[in-house]
Design a protein around this nucleic acid. Structure first.
Lengths: 332, 332
DNA sequence: CGATGTTTTGCAACCGGTTTCAGGCGGCCA
DNA sequence: TGGCCGCCTGAAACCGGTTGCAAAACATCG
C-alpha cells in the first residue's frame, strides 16, 4: 500500500539510486533528474521510510525523552516545550514514563531497540548516574533539570541551584525575615541539597541558622504533610523557601488550615513559576526557572552530541529570576 | 558497536535463521538450539533491532500519540496514564505536539515515516475528521476524549458528554438552583455542544432556560475573561456548570474579583476532576471523568485494531460521577 | 532395518532504503 | 576531430532482520 522508493524510480524512469540521491542533501544529481524524480514523488505522495534508511545511515531522528515526573504540573510545561523544540529540530520524541523505575538499564534497552539518536533525561530527582548509563552506551545524552556537579560527565542543562537558593535567601532577608526555613523536595535529590546549601550559606553568613526540612515528593500532598510537621517542630519560622511551587501550595494550605494568614503571619517563596502560580487564588511569589532557555539549550546540546559525538559534554547553568506576587510581605 | 543477530549466530555456532526464530514467538526451534542461542545472546547483551525487523514484519510497536492540549493540567494526568498503558502493552509512544496545527496530513506524514502501528488522538477539541485522516490512510486509530457521534467512523473512547451535561443539570436542580448557566469550552468543539445539549435538555424539561456561554480555550485565563463577560451580561445566574475544571477555577476567581462569594453568592460545578480540584484552596465540586478506564479502553481498542484491522471500529462511552466538594451549596 | 512422517535447520531472497564503484556521457580544449 | 576530465548514473552490495523453501536430521513404525 505505501509507496516506496522503487515505485518512484519506475515512474520517473530512473534508478533507485537517483531517487535516493534526490532526497539526500548534498548528493550529486542533475537538475533534470531531480525534477523528474520530484514530480514523480509528488504525484505518488512518496514519503521516505526513515526506519529503512536508518539501517544504513544509523540515524533515526528519534530522541528518547525520559522522565519520572508525571504528576508535577510544571512538567506539563516542560513536556510542551520539549516536544515542540524536538519537533522543530526535525527530530521526534519517543517518550518514556519511568513511573517508579530507577533502573536506567531497562530504558536503555528500550531505546536501543529503536536506535535512538540521543536521549534527554528531564528530571530533577534522578541521579547523574542515571544519565551516565546512556553516555557509557555511546549515546549522546543531556540531563535537563539535573544536578550541577563540579565536573559533570554528561551534558547538563539546569539552573544554578545553589544560586537559586542564595537568591531565595537574599529575597527573604531583604524583606526583613529573620526566622527562616527551607522546605525542599526529596532530601535524596542532589538538586535539593544544592538549593539548601546555597540558601543556608547566605543565611549563615548573615548570622542566621535556617530550619531545614524536606517533603517526600514534589507534590501538593507531600508539601502539605511536610508543613504540618514543620509547624509542629518549628512554629517560630516566619518564612519558608519551598523547593517547588506545588510543594509551596501544599505548604500554604497546611498553614492556612492551622489558622495562619499568608503572608500576614507567615511568608512563602516558591521555585519554578509554574503556570498556576499566577492564578489569583495562588499568587505565589516565586523564583522562575528559565524553562524556554533550558529546553532550547538541551536540544541544541543533543544535536551537537549527535553531530560530533566526541566533543566534550557541555554544561549550562542558567540564572533564575524572582517573580513577585503576594505570598511574602512587601519590601520595607 | 551494537551487537547484531549475526554476531549471536556466529557465537552460538548456528545460522541467522536459528537466532531469529529463537526470538520469534511460536517459531520452530529445538530446545537445544534455543539454549545455545539464548546463552550467546545473554553473553553478548544482544538487543534485537525493532526497526530492522519492522522492514519485513511491517510492525514497529510504535504508537503515535497526538494531542493539541499541552496547557490544561488535566492532560498531564492523561499523558501519564497513556504513556504507562502504552508501555505496559509492549508498545512505545511517539508523541506529537500539535500546538496550533490542525492539518492532520502533516502528522500523518510524520507518523508514516516511522511506520507507526497505530494512532491515538487525545483531544477534546479536534474534530472527528482529524482522526478520520489516519483511518483513511489505513492506520488503526482511536480518538480519546472525542465527540460521541451517532455512527462514528473511527474508534472512539470518551465520556457520554450529553450524559455529563444532564448529570450537571440534575445536580444543580437538586440543590435548588433555578437561575443556571453553562460556561463551556470552545464553542466550535462538538464535545462542548453535546454537554450543552444534555445540560439544556434537562433544564428545559424542568421549565428553565439556561444561560449559555463559551470560553475561548480550555484555560484559566479564558475562563476568567468569559466569566467577567458573563457577569456583565447575566448577573442573575446563581450557578454555573463549567465545561472544564480549569475554566471553572478561572471563572471562580473572576467572580471573587467582583466581590462574590463562592458558594455563598454563586455556585460552580466543574468537569474532569483534575488533581488540583482537590486542593484545599480549590475544593471544586466537579464531575469526574473515568480517566483510567478511558485510557485502558483506548489502548485495548488500538491493539484490537492492530491485530484485526478489518473489524468495525468500536465506541465506548463511559459514565461520569459527581465528586462533591465545596463550590456548590449543600443539598436541601 | 528400511520406509515414512515430523521437526529442525540453513540458504537465499526480501523488506526499503543508502552508498561504493565503475563506467557513460557531455563538455572543453588543443 | 580526438583526447581528457569531471559530473551523473545505474548495478550491486549492504544495513539487520524475517521467512519460504527444500534438504537434513530425527523419530516412529511395521
Amino acid at each position: 500500500m505505501p509507496v516506496t522508493l522503487l515505485d518512484v524510480a519506475v515512474r520517473a524512469g530512473v534508478s533507485k539510486s537517483a531517487v535516493s540521491r534526490t532526497f539526500t542533501p548534498g548528493a550529486s544529481v542533475s537538475a533534470k533528474t531531480r525534477a523528474k524524480v520530484e514530480a514523480a514523488a509528488r504525484a505518488l505522495g512518496y514519503q521516505p521510510n526513515v526506519l529503512a534508511s536508518s539501517l544504513t545511515t544509523g540515524r533515526t531522528k528519534l530522541i528518547g525523552l525520559i522522565s519520572n515526573n508525571f504528576t508535577n504540573p510544571f512538567f506539563l510545561e516542560i513536556f510542551d516545550h520539549f516536544t515542540r523544540a524536538i519537533q522543530d529540530a526535525g527530530l521526534r520524541p519517543l517518550l518514556i514514563n519511568l513511573s517508579d523505575e530507577v533502573d536506567a538499564g531497562k530504558s536503555l534497552g528500550m531505546l536501543r531497540q529503536y536506535n535512538v539518536d540521543g536521549v534527554i533525561v528531564a528530571s530533577s530527582t534522578l541521579p547523574p548516574e542515571f544519565a551516565m548509563v546512556f553516555h557509557d552506551a555511546g549515546l549522546p545524552v543531556v540531563h535537563a533539570f539535573g544536578w550541577s556537579q563540579p565536573s559533570p560527565r554528561t551534558a547538563l542543562v539546569s539552573i544554578d541551584n545553589a544560586g537559586a537558593g542564595a537568591l531565595a535567601a537574599q529575597t527573604l532577608l531583604a524583606r526583613d525575615y529573620r526566622k527562616i526555613g527551607f522546605l525542599g523536595g526529596p532530601e535524596s535529590a542532589a538538586t535539593t541539597q544544592d538549593r539548601a546549601k546555597g540558601f543556608a550559606d547566605v543565611l549563615t553568613a548573615a548570622g542566621l541558622n535556617p530550619a531545614l526540612r524536606y517533603a517526600e515528593a514534589y507534590s501538593y500532598a507531600a508539601g502539605r504533610v511536610a508543613m504540618l510537621a514543620a509547624q509542629a517542630a518549628r512554629p517560630d519560622v516566619e518564612a519558608w523557601f519551598c523547593g517547588d511551587d506545588v510543594i509551596a501550595v501544599g505548604a500554604m494550605d497546611a498553614a492556612r488550615s492551622l489558622g495562619l494568614d499568608v503572608p500576614g503571619d507567615i511568608g512563602f517563596l516558591g521555585l519554578n513559576d509554574m503556570a498556576m502560580a499566577s492564578w489569583d487564588r495562588v499568587a505565589l511569589t516565586t523564583i522562575r526557572q528559565p524553562l524556554t532557555q533550558i529546553v532550547e539549550r538541551s536540544v541544541d546540546l543533543i544535536q551537537r552530541g549527535i553531530d560530533a559525538p566526541d566533543e566534550m559534554p557541555g554544561m549550562s547553568l542558567l540564572p533564575c529570576k524572582l517573580v513577585e506576587r503576594g505570598t511574602l510581605r512587601a519590601l520595607p
